[in-house]
Design a binder for these strands. Sequence first.
DNA 1: GGGCTTACGCCAACGTGGTTGACCTTCGCC
DNA 2: GGCGAAGGTCAACCACGTTGGCGTAAGCCC
Lengths: 234, 234
Amino acid sequence: MAKTAVPEEQRRRRRPTKHGTVLTHELIVETALRMLREHGVQGLTARRLGLALGADASTLYRYFAGLDELTRAIADALMQRAMTGWTPGGEWRADLRDLGLRIHAAYLAHPQAAVLAASRVSGRAHEIAADEAILGVLRGAGFADPAAVRIYHVFIDQSLAFAALDAASLALPDEAREADEAVWQATYARLPSGTHPHIAATSGLLAQRMNESAYPAALDLLLSAAAAELTTRP
Amino acid sequence: MAKTAVPEEQRRRRRPTKHGTVLTHELIVETALRMLREHGVQGLTARRLGLALGADASTLYRYFAGLDELTRAIADALMQRAMTGWTPGGEWRADLRDLGLRIHAAYLAHPQAAVLAASRVSGRAHEIAADEAILGVLRGAGFADPAAVRIYHVFIDQSLAFAALDAASLALPDEAREADEAVWQATYARLPSGTHPHIAATSGLLAQRMNESAYPAALDLLLSAAAAELTTRP
DNA sequence: GGGCTTACGCCAACGTGGTTGACCTTCGCC
DNA sequence: GGCGAAGGTCAACCACGTTGGCGTAAGCCC
């Protein structure tokens, strides 16, 4: 029964695995992040992670109760990376734009973590720190509490939601990307302006945007709307 | 080798399954949607879908090359449902708000379909219709083509991204929801105002928002920002 | 030092997932 | 009546997350 995975504190004996590695929570999470970077989301499985650590997959259950908990730890490590190096400079709009892009970029490597992080309360340290920082920037800028909470909510969920979406797109094999390109050329680009005038008229612009994330544009629109709220009711 | 699944057109003979059902592409997709509604994302597997149809799982491969293609068909059916009943009334902001909420609600039942639909070019009929409609509303409202395309891009991706996120949250078992509630009470609600003043000050508002989707707020902010762009440069 | 407890590694196994190849049946057609 | 293919079933494969049992070594107490 591995349901009672031992928490980080009371660990005593470090026994090396068959191949010499000595396991820790941190090493496992870092290895998982490396696998995500190198082989995408599909490439990270309990079995392969164990193999990469020189250990058996079941050994992971001594450290994490299951994949859920591991994913949560990964999500928090990602949030940590997003936050380190970010220092608010006093201009709330620039600060939030910077942080949003950082969070989006950090989570881009792991959609499942992004989904999990946004859909569950983790209570982990770095996520709490991010929440506190965002709320601080907004309240410091002069937003009333209800508006600050509302904008905070949209800000954080939007970062994670777009990260999950964009990561899914990035994880596609080149073959699928080429297939998409072919589909686009075969359908959208050939739609007659009689039946689909708007697509036909903008197909050049659409093709340009097709392969890039909508997140930066979404972030700018969010910040614009927020700034407008702030000036109309100061 | 089921790689060459027969397309919808040239089908001739309809042989009933063991239990009498006669399969079609539409029946399979509808059954899949019903399973999604009743048992969530986890409840939809090729094996169970086959069982629900009174057929063997491998039979599905006669109709769809794999789960990817099936998911794509489901995504298009969802978009169809979102679009039917929507008739633009001439006020672009109200029209887009309505359509956004419809798309979000329709996709809420299937996050994987939402992710797939947004991250790949499907070329399916109803998605093209939605693209054309959204672009039409924006261009009709007076947006120049680059702005229209940019807002369209944010609009559609935002709907799907939030749907994926919110569906993941909805799919959680009650047990997980209670665990989240407990975690929240144990950590966020007890943070001292000394170290986390902003969370402490807004914890009541935060708790209120915790279990609801940020999408409506995000949609309103998007439309506000768009409206502002329209009036400043008419 | 001897024995006890405990952490923690490995192994074998289970159940379920998507997917495939081999086979059988029925239909439409010459 | 024979033929080819659409379209059904069945058995099997491999990978996944997960678990129970077992070995082993570190730390602790006497």
